[in-house]
Design a protein around this nucleic acid. Structure first.
Length: 376
RNA sequence: GGGGAGAUACCAAAGUGGCCAACUGGGGCAGACUGUAACUCUGCUGGCGUACGCCUUCGUAGGUUCGAAUCCUGCUCUCCCCA
Protein backbone atom coordinates (compact mmCIF):
# COMPACT_ATOMS: atom_id res chain seq x y z
CA UNK A 1 0.00 0.00 0.00
CA UNK A 2 1.14 3.50 -0.80
CA UNK A 3 -0.19 6.86 0.26
CA UNK A 4 0.57 10.18 -1.32
CA UNK A 5 -0.86 13.57 -0.48
CA UNK A 6 -1.63 15.73 -3.51
CA UNK A 7 -3.08 18.80 -1.84
CA UNK A 8 -3.29 20.40 1.55
CA UNK A 9 -6.02 22.89 2.30
CA UNK A 10 -4.65 26.26 3.35
CA UNK A 11 -7.55 27.08 5.68
CA UNK A 12 -7.66 23.80 7.61
CA UNK A 13 -5.78 20.55 8.18
CA UNK A 14 -7.66 18.85 5.35
CA UNK A 15 -5.66 16.82 2.86
CA UNK A 16 -6.44 15.20 -0.45
CA UNK A 17 -4.43 12.17 -1.43
CA UNK A 18 -4.36 8.77 -3.02
CA UNK A 19 -4.04 5.37 -1.43
CA UNK A 20 -2.76 2.76 -3.83
CA UNK A 21 -3.52 -0.90 -3.15
CA UNK A 22 -3.19 -4.04 -5.22
CA UNK A 23 -6.92 -3.85 -5.87
CA UNK A 24 -6.86 -0.28 -7.10
CA UNK A 25 -6.48 3.32 -6.06
CA UNK A 26 -8.53 5.12 -3.45
CA UNK A 27 -8.71 8.90 -3.67
CA UNK A 28 -8.96 10.47 -0.22
CA UNK A 29 -10.82 11.73 1.68
CA UNK A 30 -12.82 8.57 1.17
CA UNK A 31 -16.04 7.17 2.50
CA UNK A 32 -16.18 3.39 2.72
CA UNK A 33 -19.60 1.75 2.61
CA UNK A 34 -20.04 -0.90 5.28
CA UNK A 35 -20.59 -4.46 4.10
CA UNK A 36 -20.41 -6.27 7.41
CA UNK A 37 -21.52 -9.78 6.51
CA UNK A 38 -20.41 -9.91 2.90
CA UNK A 39 -22.79 -7.41 1.39
CA UNK A 40 -23.47 -3.73 1.61
CA UNK A 41 -27.02 -4.31 2.74
CA UNK A 42 -29.51 -4.03 -0.07
CA UNK A 43 -26.98 -3.11 -2.73
CA UNK A 44 -25.49 -5.32 -5.41
CA UNK A 45 -21.83 -5.18 -6.31
CA UNK A 46 -22.79 -3.84 -9.74
CA UNK A 47 -24.69 -0.93 -8.21
CA UNK A 48 -21.88 -0.38 -5.76
CA UNK A 49 -19.51 0.10 -8.66
CA UNK A 50 -21.68 1.74 -11.27
CA UNK A 51 -24.29 3.76 -9.42
CA UNK A 52 -22.28 4.59 -6.32
CA UNK A 53 -18.69 4.12 -7.44
CA UNK A 54 -17.46 2.94 -4.07
CA UNK A 55 -13.68 2.73 -4.15
CA UNK A 56 -13.40 0.47 -1.13
CA UNK A 57 -15.83 -1.31 1.15
CA UNK A 58 -15.74 -2.77 4.63
CA UNK A 59 -16.18 -6.28 5.92
CA UNK A 60 -16.24 -7.54 9.48
CA UNK A 61 -14.03 -10.28 10.90
CA UNK A 62 -16.43 -11.23 13.67
CA UNK A 63 -19.40 -11.65 11.38
CA UNK A 64 -17.53 -13.35 8.54
CA UNK A 65 -15.81 -15.67 11.02
CA UNK A 66 -19.22 -16.83 12.26
CA UNK A 67 -20.77 -16.92 8.78
CA UNK A 68 -19.81 -18.26 6.30
CA UNK A 69 -16.68 -19.12 8.31
CA UNK A 70 -13.01 -18.89 7.52
CA UNK A 71 -12.78 -22.27 5.79
CA UNK A 72 -15.31 -21.29 3.19
CA UNK A 73 -13.65 -17.93 2.58
CA UNK A 74 -10.33 -19.67 2.23
CA UNK A 75 -11.69 -22.24 -0.21
CA UNK A 76 -13.39 -19.46 -2.17
CA UNK A 77 -9.98 -17.90 -2.66
CA UNK A 78 -10.60 -15.00 -0.33
CA UNK A 79 -13.39 -12.55 0.27
CA UNK A 80 -12.85 -10.61 -2.96
CA UNK A 81 -13.54 -13.66 -5.07
CA UNK A 82 -16.22 -14.96 -2.74
CA UNK A 83 -18.28 -11.79 -3.05
CA UNK A 84 -17.17 -10.92 -6.56
CA UNK A 85 -15.68 -7.58 -5.65
CA UNK A 86 -12.36 -6.68 -7.21
CA UNK A 87 -11.82 -3.34 -5.53
CA UNK A 88 -10.19 -2.92 -2.11
CA UNK A 89 -11.70 -4.27 1.09
CA UNK A 90 -10.98 -3.18 4.64
CA UNK A 91 -11.94 -5.47 7.50
CA UNK A 92 -12.66 -4.51 11.04
CA UNK A 93 -11.09 -6.84 13.57
CA UNK A 94 -14.17 -7.46 15.66
CA UNK A 95 -13.17 -4.92 18.27
CA UNK A 96 -16.41 -3.07 17.79
CA UNK A 97 -18.37 -6.23 18.53
CA UNK A 98 -16.61 -6.39 21.90
CA UNK A 99 -18.42 -3.14 22.51
CA UNK A 100 -21.76 -3.72 20.81
CA UNK A 101 -22.30 -7.32 21.92
CA UNK A 102 -21.06 -6.52 25.40
CA UNK A 103 -23.45 -8.80 27.28
CA UNK A 104 -22.10 -11.84 25.46
CA UNK A 105 -18.40 -11.39 26.03
CA UNK A 106 -15.57 -11.21 28.51
CA UNK A 107 -12.36 -9.25 28.00
CA UNK A 108 -9.16 -10.89 29.21
CA UNK A 109 -5.46 -10.23 28.71
CA UNK A 110 -5.29 -13.06 26.22
CA UNK A 111 -8.11 -11.72 24.08
CA UNK A 112 -11.84 -11.64 24.28
CA UNK A 113 -14.06 -14.59 24.87
CA UNK A 114 -17.51 -14.30 23.40
CA UNK A 115 -20.61 -16.21 22.57
CA UNK A 116 -21.93 -16.16 19.05
CA UNK A 117 -25.05 -14.04 18.72
CA UNK A 118 -26.26 -16.65 16.21
CA UNK A 119 -26.05 -19.94 18.09
CA UNK A 120 -24.47 -19.13 21.44
CA UNK A 121 -21.29 -21.07 20.67
CA UNK A 122 -18.18 -19.99 22.56
CA UNK A 123 -15.13 -18.49 20.82
CA UNK A 124 -12.02 -16.52 21.60
CA UNK A 125 -10.51 -13.73 19.53
CA UNK A 126 -6.90 -12.87 20.23
CA UNK A 127 -4.74 -10.19 18.61
CA UNK A 128 -3.07 -13.02 16.72
CA UNK A 129 -6.19 -14.91 15.69
CA UNK A 130 -7.84 -11.84 14.18
CA UNK A 131 -4.72 -11.38 12.05
CA UNK A 132 -5.08 -14.97 10.85
CA UNK A 133 -8.78 -14.45 10.19
CA UNK A 134 -8.08 -11.33 8.17
CA UNK A 135 -5.32 -13.13 6.28
CA UNK A 136 -7.92 -15.69 5.27
CA UNK A 137 -10.45 -13.03 4.38
CA UNK A 138 -7.73 -11.39 2.33
CA UNK A 139 -8.69 -7.82 3.06
CA UNK A 140 -6.39 -5.14 1.68
CA UNK A 141 -6.44 -3.27 4.95
CA UNK A 142 -6.67 -5.20 8.20
CA UNK A 143 -7.35 -3.76 11.62
CA UNK A 144 -5.77 -4.45 14.97
CA UNK A 145 -7.85 -5.96 17.74
CA UNK A 146 -8.86 -3.21 20.16
CA UNK A 147 -11.34 -2.61 22.89
CA UNK A 148 -13.79 0.07 21.89
CA UNK A 149 -14.75 1.67 25.18
CA UNK A 150 -18.29 2.86 25.71
CA UNK A 151 -19.37 6.36 26.64
CA UNK A 152 -19.41 7.37 29.38
CA UNK A 153 -16.30 5.55 30.56
CA UNK A 154 -14.47 6.46 33.74
CA UNK A 155 -10.84 7.46 33.57
CA UNK A 156 -9.51 4.37 35.29
CA UNK A 157 -11.25 2.00 32.97
CA UNK A 158 -10.32 4.05 29.90
CA UNK A 159 -6.69 4.00 30.97
CA UNK A 160 -6.61 0.28 31.68
CA UNK A 161 -8.48 -0.51 28.48
CA UNK A 162 -6.10 1.63 26.46
CA UNK A 163 -3.16 -0.25 27.99
CA UNK A 164 -4.74 -3.53 26.94
CA UNK A 165 -5.39 -2.26 23.43
CA UNK A 166 -1.71 -1.23 23.22
CA UNK A 167 -0.47 -4.61 24.44
CA UNK A 168 -2.80 -6.32 21.99
CA UNK A 169 -1.43 -4.07 19.28
CA UNK A 170 2.15 -5.11 19.95
CA UNK A 171 1.17 -8.78 19.70
CA UNK A 172 -0.90 -8.15 16.59
CA UNK A 173 1.87 -6.31 14.80
CA UNK A 174 4.35 -9.03 15.66
CA UNK A 175 2.04 -11.71 14.34
CA UNK A 176 1.24 -9.72 11.24
CA UNK A 177 4.95 -9.24 10.55
CA UNK A 178 5.69 -12.93 10.89
CA UNK A 179 2.86 -14.17 8.68
CA UNK A 180 2.29 -13.86 4.96
CA UNK A 181 -0.72 -13.01 2.83
CA UNK A 182 -2.52 -16.15 1.67
CA UNK A 183 -3.60 -14.73 -1.69
CA UNK A 184 -1.60 -12.89 -4.29
CA UNK A 185 -1.96 -9.34 -3.00
CA UNK A 186 -0.41 -7.39 -0.17
CA UNK A 187 -2.16 -6.44 3.04
CA UNK A 188 -1.72 -3.56 5.48
CA UNK A 189 -2.30 -3.45 9.20
CA UNK A 190 -3.77 -0.39 10.92
CA UNK A 191 -3.44 0.19 14.66
CA UNK A 192 -6.24 1.95 16.51
CA UNK A 193 -6.01 4.89 18.90
CA UNK A 194 -8.20 4.63 22.01
CA UNK A 195 -8.36 6.66 25.22
CA UNK A 196 -12.05 7.53 25.43
CA UNK A 197 -12.64 11.28 25.89
CA UNK A 198 -9.50 12.00 27.92
CA UNK A 199 -7.03 14.27 26.20
CA UNK A 200 -3.95 12.92 27.96
CA UNK A 201 -4.92 9.32 27.20
CA UNK A 202 -5.65 10.14 23.58
CA UNK A 203 -2.24 11.84 23.25
CA UNK A 204 -0.50 8.92 24.86
CA UNK A 205 -2.34 6.46 22.66
CA UNK A 206 -1.65 8.43 19.48
CA UNK A 207 2.04 8.55 20.36
CA UNK A 208 2.18 4.84 21.07
CA UNK A 209 0.33 3.97 17.89
CA UNK A 210 2.52 6.28 15.80
CA UNK A 211 5.67 4.67 17.10
CA UNK A 212 4.83 1.43 15.34
CA UNK A 213 5.05 3.19 11.99
CA UNK A 214 2.34 1.20 10.24
CA UNK A 215 1.00 2.11 6.80
CA UNK A 216 -2.04 3.83 8.22
CA UNK A 217 -3.61 4.64 11.56
CA UNK A 218 -7.12 4.58 12.90
CA UNK A 219 -8.99 6.50 15.54
CA UNK A 220 -11.48 4.35 17.40
CA UNK A 221 -13.79 4.67 20.35
CA UNK A 222 -15.48 7.82 19.10
CA UNK A 223 -19.07 8.47 18.02
CA UNK A 224 -20.21 6.09 20.71
CA UNK A 225 -22.59 8.58 22.31
CA UNK A 226 -20.33 11.42 23.40
CA UNK A 227 -21.22 15.02 22.48
CA UNK A 228 -20.02 15.94 19.00
CA UNK A 229 -17.73 18.66 20.27
CA UNK A 230 -15.90 16.15 22.42
CA UNK A 231 -15.46 13.90 19.42
CA UNK A 232 -13.93 16.73 17.38
CA UNK A 233 -11.73 17.70 20.29
CA UNK A 234 -10.35 14.16 20.61
CA UNK A 235 -9.98 13.88 16.88
CA UNK A 236 -8.04 17.13 16.79
CA UNK A 237 -5.69 16.04 19.56
CA UNK A 238 -4.97 12.77 17.82
CA UNK A 239 -4.54 14.02 14.25
CA UNK A 240 -1.92 16.48 15.47
CA UNK A 241 0.18 13.56 16.63
CA UNK A 242 -0.42 10.84 14.03
CA UNK A 243 2.15 10.82 11.19
CA UNK A 244 1.34 13.30 8.41
CA UNK A 245 2.33 10.95 5.64
CA UNK A 246 0.01 8.10 6.58
CA UNK A 247 -3.73 7.91 6.08
CA UNK A 248 -5.88 8.52 9.15
CA UNK A 249 -9.06 6.56 9.50
CA UNK A 250 -11.82 7.72 11.83
CA UNK A 251 -13.77 4.58 12.54
CA UNK A 252 -17.54 4.55 12.38
CA UNK A 253 -18.05 8.23 11.60
CA UNK A 254 -20.55 9.52 10.78
CA UNK A 255 -23.08 12.07 9.65
CA UNK A 256 -22.20 14.13 6.57
CA UNK A 257 -21.50 17.07 8.87
CA UNK A 258 -19.30 14.92 11.14
CA UNK A 259 -17.30 13.86 8.14
CA UNK A 260 -16.67 17.35 6.79
CA UNK A 261 -15.64 18.58 10.24
CA UNK A 262 -13.28 15.64 10.62
CA UNK A 263 -11.77 16.13 7.18
CA UNK A 264 -10.95 19.64 8.32
CA UNK A 265 -9.05 18.12 11.22
CA UNK A 266 -6.98 15.97 8.88
CA UNK A 267 -8.87 12.69 8.67
CA UNK A 268 -8.72 10.81 5.37
CA UNK A 269 -10.92 7.74 5.72
CA UNK A 270 -14.42 7.16 7.05
CA UNK A 271 -16.98 4.42 7.30
CA UNK A 272 -20.44 4.40 8.77
CA UNK A 273 -23.60 2.33 8.65
CA UNK A 274 -25.69 5.48 8.68
CA UNK A 275 -26.31 5.91 4.94
CA UNK A 276 -27.52 2.32 4.64
CA UNK A 277 -29.19 1.63 7.99
CA UNK A 278 -30.81 5.02 8.36
CA UNK A 279 -31.74 4.88 4.71
CA UNK A 280 -33.58 1.61 5.28
CA UNK A 281 -35.33 3.30 8.15
CA UNK A 282 -36.44 6.22 6.02
CA UNK A 283 -33.78 8.87 6.61
CA UNK A 284 -32.42 10.47 3.47
CA UNK A 285 -29.43 12.75 3.15
CA UNK A 286 -29.89 15.31 0.41
CA UNK A 287 -28.18 18.46 -0.78
CA UNK A 288 -30.90 20.49 0.95
CA UNK A 289 -30.80 18.66 4.26
CA UNK A 290 -32.16 15.60 5.97
CA UNK A 291 -35.52 14.11 5.02
CA UNK A 292 -37.57 11.67 7.05
CA UNK A 293 -39.33 10.22 4.05
CA UNK A 294 -41.89 8.45 6.25
CA UNK A 295 -43.36 11.78 7.29
CA UNK A 296 -46.85 12.56 6.08
CA UNK A 297 -45.78 15.78 4.42
CA UNK A 298 -44.12 13.92 1.55
CA UNK A 299 -47.15 11.83 0.66
CA UNK A 300 -48.05 13.91 -2.40
CA UNK A 301 -44.70 15.52 -3.10
CA UNK A 302 -43.94 14.25 -6.57
CA UNK A 303 -40.66 16.13 -6.89
CA UNK A 304 -37.40 14.17 -7.16
CA UNK A 305 -35.82 12.83 -3.97
CA UNK A 306 -32.81 15.07 -4.65
CA UNK A 307 -33.25 17.37 -7.63
CA UNK A 308 -29.57 18.27 -7.77
CA UNK A 309 -28.89 14.73 -8.88
CA UNK A 310 -26.42 13.57 -6.26
CA UNK A 311 -27.60 10.10 -7.26
CA UNK A 312 -29.27 8.56 -10.27
CA UNK A 313 -32.10 7.17 -8.18
CA UNK A 314 -32.48 10.51 -6.42
CA UNK A 315 -33.27 12.13 -9.73
CA UNK A 316 -35.35 9.26 -11.05
CA UNK A 317 -37.83 8.64 -8.23
CA UNK A 318 -40.16 11.01 -6.45
CA UNK A 319 -40.40 11.56 -2.71
CA UNK A 320 -44.02 10.43 -2.73
CA UNK A 321 -43.09 7.16 -4.44
CA UNK A 322 -40.20 6.43 -2.09
CA UNK A 323 -42.36 7.28 0.91
CA UNK A 324 -44.93 4.82 -0.36
CA UNK A 325 -42.32 2.08 -0.84
CA UNK A 326 -40.76 2.54 2.58
CA UNK A 327 -44.10 2.74 4.36
CA UNK A 328 -45.33 -0.32 2.50
CA UNK A 329 -42.10 -2.07 3.53
CA UNK A 330 -41.25 -2.83 -0.06
CA UNK A 331 -37.64 -3.96 -0.42
CA UNK A 332 -37.07 -1.60 -3.30
CA UNK A 333 -37.64 1.32 -0.96
CA UNK A 334 -34.73 0.31 1.24
CA UNK A 335 -32.59 -0.22 -1.84
CA UNK A 336 -33.36 3.15 -3.37
CA UNK A 337 -32.77 4.91 -0.06
CA UNK A 338 -29.46 3.11 0.47
CA UNK A 339 -28.22 3.77 -3.03
CA UNK A 340 -29.21 7.38 -2.79
CA UNK A 341 -27.58 7.95 0.59
CA UNK A 342 -24.34 6.26 -0.39
CA UNK A 343 -24.21 8.18 -3.65
CA UNK A 344 -24.80 11.35 -1.71
CA UNK A 345 -21.90 10.55 0.61
CA UNK A 346 -19.69 9.78 -2.39
CA UNK A 347 -20.64 13.03 -4.06
CA UNK A 348 -19.87 14.93 -0.90
CA UNK A 349 -16.43 13.35 -0.69
CA UNK A 350 -15.68 14.14 -4.32
CA UNK A 351 -16.67 17.71 -3.75
CA UNK A 352 -14.55 17.88 -0.61
CA UNK A 353 -11.55 16.70 -2.62
CA UNK A 354 -12.12 19.36 -5.22
CA UNK A 355 -12.42 22.08 -2.60
CA UNK A 356 -9.22 20.94 -0.94
CA UNK A 357 -7.46 21.03 -4.30
CA UNK A 358 -8.76 24.60 -4.83
CA UNK A 359 -7.89 25.69 -1.32
CA UNK A 360 -11.51 26.57 -0.68
CA UNK A 361 -12.37 23.70 1.60
CA UNK A 362 -12.71 25.53 4.91
CA UNK A 363 -15.20 28.11 3.67
CA UNK A 364 -17.16 25.55 1.76
CA UNK A 365 -17.28 23.26 4.78
CA UNK A 366 -18.56 26.07 6.99
CA UNK A 367 -21.31 26.81 4.50
CA UNK A 368 -22.21 23.14 4.03
CA UNK A 369 -22.39 21.95 7.62
CA UNK A 370 -25.52 23.90 8.67
CA UNK A 371 -27.18 22.91 5.43
CA UNK A 372 -26.39 19.23 5.93
CA UNK A 373 -27.84 19.36 9.43
CA UNK A 374 -31.10 20.98 8.31
CA UNK A 375 -34.20 18.89 8.88
CA UNK A 376 -36.60 19.23 6.01
C1' G B 1 -90.60 -19.65 7.46
C1' G B 2 -87.78 -22.08 11.87
C1' G B 3 -83.38 -22.05 15.02
C1' G B 4 -78.86 -19.74 16.67
C1' A B 5 -74.91 -15.97 17.18
C1' G B 6 -73.49 -11.08 17.33
C1' A B 7 -73.14 -5.39 17.14
C1' U B 8 -66.68 -2.32 21.37
C1' A B 9 -62.32 3.32 19.31
C1' C B 10 -59.63 3.94 11.85
C1' C B 11 -59.64 -1.88 11.18
C1' A B 12 -59.49 -6.58 13.71
C1' A B 13 -60.32 -8.18 18.52
C1' A B 14 -60.33 -8.76 24.29
C1' G B 15 -63.31 -7.22 28.28
C1' U B 16 -69.12 -9.64 30.49
C1' G B 17 -71.46 -5.05 37.41
C1' G B 18 -66.79 -0.87 40.27
C1' C B 19 -59.28 -1.93 39.38
C1' C B 20 -62.29 0.61 31.88
C1' A B 21 -61.04 6.00 28.21
C1' A B 22 -61.30 0.37 27.68
C1' C B 23 -55.96 -5.64 26.87
C1' U B 24 -53.56 -6.94 22.31
C1' G B 25 -52.48 -6.77 17.01
C1' G B 26 -52.72 -3.96 12.57
C1' G B 27 -53.05 0.82 10.55
C1' G B 28 -51.93 6.02 11.39
C1' C B 29 -48.61 9.94 13.46
C1' A B 30 -43.88 11.25 15.40
C1' G B 31 -38.88 10.16 17.18
C1' A B 32 -34.27 7.31 17.39
C1' C B 33 -30.33 4.98 14.60
C1' U B 34 -22.58 6.87 13.82
C1' G B 35 -15.91 0.51 13.13
C1' U B 36 -24.54 -3.13 11.47
C1' A B 37 -27.34 -9.13 16.60
C1' A B 38 -31.09 -3.38 13.21
C1' C B 39 -36.16 -3.56 6.24
C1' U B 40 -35.02 -2.38 13.57
C1' C B 41 -36.37 -0.01 18.07
C1' U B 42 -39.22 3.73 21.13
C1' G B 43 -43.42 6.92 22.11
C1' C B 44 -48.33 8.62 21.01
C1' U B 45 -53.04 7.22 18.83
C1' G B 46 -61.66 9.94 22.05
C1' G B 47 -61.66 15.62 23.45
C1' C B 48 -59.32 19.64 26.47
C1' G B 49 -54.86 20.35 29.73
C1' U B 50 -47.54 20.17 30.71
C1' A B 51 -49.51 17.43 34.85
C1' C B 52 -53.09 15.97 39.19
C1' G B 53 -57.55 15.99 36.37
C1' C B 54 -62.15 17.12 33.91
C1' C B 55 -65.63 16.01 29.88
C1' U B 56 -67.94 12.65 26.11
C1' U B 57 -67.70 7.19 24.53
C1' C B 58 -68.62 0.40 23.82
C1' G B 59 -75.49 -0.21 17.60
C1' U B 60 -79.96 2.58 19.49
C1' A B 61 -83.98 4.10 23.10
C1' G B 62 -85.38 3.20 27.84
C1' G B 63 -84.85 0.57 32.65
C1' U B 64 -82.45 -1.91 37.17
C1' U B 65 -78.31 -0.32 40.49
C1' C B 66 -74.77 3.86 44.96
C1' G B 67 -72.29 2.42 40.23
C1' A B 68 -73.22 -0.56 33.53
C1' A B 69 -69.33 -1.73 27.63
C1' U B 70 -70.88 -5.57 31.12
C1' C B 71 -77.77 -7.11 33.87
C1' C B 72 -83.21 -6.40 31.88
C1' U B 73 -86.79 -4.66 27.88
C1' G B 74 -88.06 -2.51 23.06
C1' C B 75 -86.11 -1.14 18.37
C1' U B 76 -82.47 -1.23 14.18
C1' C B 77 -78.81 -3.87 11.67
C1' U B 78 -75.32 -8.05 10.55
C1' C B 79 -73.90 -13.11 10.23
C1' C B 80 -74.54 -18.58 10.50
C1' C B 81 -77.47 -23.23 10.26
C1' C B 82 -82.06 -25.84 8.78
C1' A B 83 -86.18 -25.63 5.35
Amino acid sequence: MKFSIDHRDSGSSARAGIITTDHGVIPTPVFMPVGTVGSVKGISQTELKEAIDAKIILGNSYHLFLRPGIKILNRAGGHHKFMSWDRPILTDSGGYQVFSLSNNRKVTEEGYIFRSHIDGSKHIFTPESVVDIQRNIGSDITMALDECTPYPCDYDYAQKSMGLTHRWLERGIKHFATTQPIYDHTQSFFPIVQGSVYTDLRKQSAETISSYDQEGNAIGGLSVGEPEELMYEMCDVVTQILPQDKPRYLMGVGTPANILESIALGVDMFDCVMPTRNGRNGMLFTSNGIINIKNEKWKDDFSAIDETGTSGVGKQYSKAYLRHLINAKEMLGAQIASIHNLSFYMCLMNEAREKIANNTFADWKNRMVPKLKTRL
